[in-house]
């Protein structure tokens, strides 16, 4: 199984924050257009939020195929229930994806997760360094897979997605203190698993 990493250039589309800042393209306006029958307008919301949601699903499940499926099902669900959105669309759709990931993890226990980035240009100076990185990638995946879903989710949101604790608390409906505890425990568990090799 391999990750296929796609690197989009900035010329492909306007930046997300630019689009959101435009009142005509605010989430609420786009939702109104979709609800009034403009199905294609939903593509704006997909483009706007698919990357962070895909990253979350990918890091939670370790499988690009599963991440794509969860993303697809989540957006279909979001479309079907679009009239029920209260508040921020991005937070609402994130919760759909996060729940999809947790449901998948409940049902499937995976012992080995790995990926390669065939499409991504190498950022490392030497082949040896790249080999080391590939090994670290696999080891980190394996270590993440051993964590309970709640710890993995907190670690991914904090470290991979770069969210603040306040934002995480808002999205997950829990407290900053509880999330700090989860992230700390995830770090300690990961370090215990990996430090012998990588410290």
């Amino acid at each position: 199984m391999g990750y296929s990493v796609v690197v989009k250039t900035t010329e492909q589309a306007p930046r997300t924050d630019q689009l959101i800042a435009d009142p005509e393209n605010s989430d609420q306006m786009v939702i109104q257009r979709v609800l009034s029958g403009n199905r294609d307008a939903f593509k704006i919301l997909i483009s706007r939020y698919s990357d962070p949601l895909y990253r979350h699903a990918l890091c939670m499940t370790g499988s690009p195929d599963v991440a794509e499926d969860i993303l697809q099902l989540s957006f279909i669900k979001a479309y079907q229930h679009l009239a029920e959105v209260r508040g921020r669309f991005d937070a609402w759709v994130f919760r759909i994806v996060a729940n999809g990931c947790k449901d998948w993890l409940k049902n499937i226990r995976r012992s080995h997760l790995s990926y390669d980035e065939d499409d991504q240009p190498s950022a490392y100076a030497t082949p040896d360094e790249e080999l080391d990185r590939t090994e670290l990638r696999s080891d980190l995946d394996r270590a993440l897979a051993t964590l309970p879903a709640s710890l993995r989710e907190a670690f991914v949101m904090k470290h991979v997605e770069g969210r603040s604790y306040e934002e995480m608390a808002d999205l997950l409906g829990t407290t900053v203190g509880a999330l700090k505890m989860r992230v700390h425990r995830a770090r300690e568990a990961l370090q215990a698993l990996l430090e012998e090799k990588y410290a």
Binding site: S50, I76, Y79
Partner: peptide, 28 residues
């Protein structure tokens, strides 16, 4: 360093089209 690499991962380009094709034809 590895985490930063993951932060740059983007959705495969075909997924957007796949999702749009899978949406119901009727308005929600």
């Amino acid at each position: 360093v590895e985490v930063e690499t993951r932060r740059r991962i983007l959705t495969p380009v075909f997924v957007e089209t796949k999702i749009m094709n899978a949406l119901p034809q009727t308005a929600p």
